[in-house]
Amino acid sequence: MRKSTWIRQHLAALRALLVLTVITGIVYPLAVFVIAQVPGLHDRANGSLIESGGEVVGSSLIGQSFADADGKALAQYFQSRPSAAGDGYDPLSSGASNLGPESIVDTLNADPSNAKPSLLSTVCARSKEIGDREGVDGSRPFCTEDGVGAVVSVIGPRDTNGAVSHPVRVVSVNQACPAQPFVATYLGVRVECAKPGEDYSVGRIVPIRGDAPADSAVPADAVTASGSGLDPNISPAYAAIQVARIAKSRDISEDQVRQVLDAHTAGRTLGFLGEPRVNVVELNIDLDNRDPPRG
């Protein structure tokens, strides 16, 4: 009797396994595949791939780097936003740098190639580079003219609020010696450059705003990576400051470049979701199709 019950229970479990395997392992995936082939869904379901000259050259969902082997921006192309995904836009290593707004002090090293910049210095360096490349003012608040975070360590006795009213030493913590500090004095004390390997956390870390405009000519998306590191879009503001460089490189008018840019500028989704955006991958491919780069 017990054996018969045991057999029936196991046969019922086996039938349930077979039925669920057919439904979830065959019927459901097949139904999803068939629905995905419906016109209007087909391209998205297959990766939103972009073809040019009969070859797949990318996806409209994943950004690309438009730089040479040394990482230098190619003058004839619109530049994407930075990426922290692997070596850049690696879909197998999507992710961000995980650095937050409190990351303002660099880890200096006698060998500059082994230094670890803070998020602030990374943003400052990118803004300066883009400003120089695009011919606009790349200065930002809390950034030095040479493109690092404008941060000092104020060393001395502290009051009950933690402030140092009479400092005995002030160090520009992100400017390695023999760099010239971005300010000569602070609270009447000469500012020193930082010595790699020396710890200045004993002092009060103070970011210095400087006289840069609150709204930089270089937009925020030009100097910060997306959460996934794969975002193919940039803001229309970042695209706009690149027009002159691209027109000059391709030997065409700025109006011609703007016409292509306007064709690839999308507004807010449904009129209120997200921000206006420009798909850099599609834009650069269209530019090459309309006007191949010279040389």
Rank of each mutant, 00 (worst) to 15 (best):
V168Y: 02
S165R: 10
V171D: 09
V154P: 00
P157S: 12
V202G: 11
V164G: 03
T144K: 01
K195A: 09
F182K: 01
F142M: 14
V218D: 13
D211H: 04
R204F: 07
P178S: 15
A212K: 01
V152R: 00
Y200T: 00
V206I: 07
P141Y: 07
G162V: 08
G156W: 11
A176C: 12
A150E: 11
D199E: 12
P207V: 08
Y186N: 03
H166Y: 03
P213V: 04
S201E: 13
D199H: 06
V154D: 08
V191Y: 07
R169Q: 14
P207F: 13
E145S: 14
G162L: 07
Y186I: 02
V206Q: 14
S165W: 09
E145A: 08
A176M: 08
V191R: 02
V206D: 11
V152H: 03
N161H: 13
P207I: 11
N174T: 10
V206E: 15
G188H: 09
L187P: 00
A222S: 13
T185C: 05
S172L: 13
A212H: 02
A220C: 07
V218K: 03
A220P: 01
F142K: 01
C143F: 07
D146T: 13
P167E: 10
I155W: 06
K195H: 13
A179I: 00
V154G: 03
N174Q: 09
Q175H: 03
P141L: 14
A163T: 10
S165Q: 10
D211R: 02
A179H: 02
G149W: 14
V223A: 05
D159T: 08
G156Q: 15
T144A: 08
R190T: 11
P157Q: 12
V170E: 07
A212L: 05
H166G: 11
G210L: 05
A179Q: 08
P181H: 07
V152M: 10
G156R: 08
I155T: 05
D199P: 00
D221Q: 04
R158C: 03
A212V: 00
A184V: 04
G188E: 06
D146E: 12
T185I: 05
H166V: 14
D199M: 10
R169W: 05
A220L: 07
G156S: 11
S201A: 08
A184E: 06
C143D: 09
Q180R: 01
A179V: 01
S226K: 13
V152Q: 02
Q175W: 08
D159V: 13
V189Y: 04
V168T: 12
G188A: 13
D211E: 15
V173G: 00
A179W: 11
A150R: 02
R158H: 08
G210P: 01
G197I: 15
V164S: 05
P167Y: 09
V154L: 11
V154T: 13
V148I: 09
G162R: 05
A225M: 09
P196S: 14
I155P: 00
